[in-house]
């Protein structure tokens, strides 16, 4: 898809969502589902004074969590994929801990790391890092052996192998795993932001709900979904720039 049709696709998607929303609000005809027009009007008037700061907080937490997950997940996944011994030692640990619903660990993490930023970033990290490890590891394992031979016969060292083969070969799998994990990460972020903070989209939306201000609540939901859109399209963009082959 070229740039133009991608842009058209987004507009088309937004239109479909708005249409469904409009129909639902007309059918229900209650304040709990206001029409999109009213919400967008409200959003424009409250975005800069009220919502922007919460959006930045949420975005910052996600970026920090993803950054941590990349920092730890990619090297670990590469090593587990390339060195059989690392895989044998670490895979059981990953398999045991991966299926644990990370949200169940929230109370523990909050007790250990407090109610502040650290706990929230750690939750996102925990959700994304496993997907990254497993995807990168499998990406490395799926490289055909013959790919290495010309480099081995050139006397390539481990650093050469990582730079020339492992990292580029596992990049597409890594980006896919990030995409899969991102949606879960945003939902869990929402949940963590309802505790112990006065900033973040989770706080803003729940707070609006408590105040029975449905217009602001919906404005918050729209902003959250735009944050998601920005994150996904950023991943798409990175993929297009780095995995052109």
């Amino acid at each position: 898809m070229n740039e133009k049709s991608t842009g058209l696709g987004y507009i088309y998607g937004i239109f479909i969502v708005l249409a469904f929303w409009q129909v639902a609000s007309a059918l229900v005809n209650l304040p709990i589902i206001p029409s999109p027009g009213v919400v967008l009007e409200n959003l424009i008037s409250v975005f800069v004074p009220k919502i922007a700061i919460h959006g930045l907080y949420s975005l910052g937490r996600i970026v920090a969590g993803v950054f941590l997950a990349v920092l730890i997940g990619i090297p670990l996944g590469l090593c587990m994929g390339y060195f059989a011994r690392w895989d044998r030692a670490l895979s059981p640990v990953v398999y045991l801990t991966y299926p644990i619903p990370k949200i169940a660990l929230l109370p523990v993490i909050m007790l250990l790391f407090g109610l502040g930023e650290m706990a929230k970033v750690l939750m996102i990290f925990l959700i994304i890092v496993f997907q990254v490890i497993v995807a990168v590891r499998d990406g490395v394992k799926s490289i055909p052996k013959e790919t290495y031979y010309p480099l081995y016969s050139l006397g390539a060292g481990v650093a050469d192998i990582f730079r020339e083969i492992l990292i580029p070969a596992s990049l597409p799998k890594f980006l896919t795993s990030l995409r899969v994990a991102m949606a879960t990460a945003i939902s869990v972020l929402f949940f963590t932001e309802t505790f112990g903070t006065q900033y973040g989209m989770g706080y803003f939306i729940m707070d609006a709900w408590m105040r029975v201000n449905y217009l602001e609540m919906y404005s918050g939901i729209v902003v959250l979904s735009i944050i998601g859109l920005i994150l996904f399209s950023t991943i798409d963009y990175i993929e297009k720039k780095t995995c052109y082959w």
Binding site: P144, E146, Y149, P150, L154, G155
Partner: peptide, 21 residues
């Protein structure tokens, strides 16, 4: 034989080109 010391060119059956280069 020491690949790091000598120059050995190896062309495998699938040509061994890196698709990302």
């Amino acid at each position: 034989i020491r690949p790091s010391k000598q120059r050995i060119g190896f062309i495998p059956q699938n040509y061994g080109l890196l698709p990302w280069k």
